[in-house]
Design a protein around this nucleic acid. Sequence first.
DNA 1: TATATACCCGACTATTTTAGTCAAGTTTAA
DNA 2: TTAAACTTGACTAAAATAGTCGGGTATATA
Lengths: 139, 139
Amino acid sequence: MKLSSKSRYAVMALTDLAKFNTKDPVTLRDISLRQGISLVYLEQLFLKLKKNNIVKSIRGKKGGYILNKKASEVKISDILLAVDEKIKTIGCKKNSKEGCNGRSSKCITHDFWEELEDHICDFFKKKKLEDLINQTRFN
Amino acid sequence: MKLSSKSRYAVMALTDLAKFNTKDPVTLRDISLRQGISLVYLEQLFLKLKKNNIVKSIRGKKGGYILNKKASEVKISDILLAVDEKIKTIGCKKNSKEGCNGRSSKCITHDFWEELEDHICDFFKKKKLEDLINQTRFN
DNA sequence: TATATACCCGACTATTTTAGTCAAGTTTAA
DNA sequence: TTAAACTTGACTAAAATAGTCGGGTATATA
């Protein structure tokens, strides 16, 4: 059970962005250097974050990215959703008639996994980007 | 973020075992048939569960497996540990001096991921095998 | 209006992990 | 004696992951 580095990078990058999002847009190049994440990989991530209205891009010289909302309004779950992180502990389809393993209508531990899923999702929904900004000392 | 089917199967199989663990040992063949898990795969899992003192095996004809403790004393976290499920949300080493990405001593979101890890582990530590037995109707 | 800076996008690939099989045993109750 | 059941290591196909590569497009500034 692990989180993909896609998600880890997305949260790291946005935390960095939120920290430096004072007035001028922040360039991916800067985030890349500060956080040690490949620039090309960041581009992929920010494309998705933009499509999901988490950031706005400003093109041209002096361009870069800014947050689309206040850091206090960005849920971590929004970020994970944007980069396609799936919180799926089970193969069972939630409201499927054919059931979890194609045999019984529900596998014997179905409810347990669903509970786990909710437990994790709750955590991500409660946490806001703002909560992360001042949590750790910066480099 | 997903749980391996190794873990899912281990929990399913043990829940099944706990349900049928009345007097006689339960054979893997029966668990395999009831739960739709490959017999050979179950053998692999129960080897690990046995090494970790979660089950005991009884050899020979009429043999099979029984729980080594009461179902109320088996934590789900014990099971996951036994089959090598890693709850690692981050690459960061917990008490390493070199730090998470080989650069800074701690990555910017380190504390957040650690909190998530604890959140998930707590869930698994609180849940006992017994809690699962009567949760879902059986097939 | 030239151009450097920065974003945009699809295709591709090496590596790792996962899920599961295969084959060949050993043990023991009946 | 033998069938049922556990034991073990090696192997493999498929999927997911973490990125790279190459070639764009948009626009602020000089």
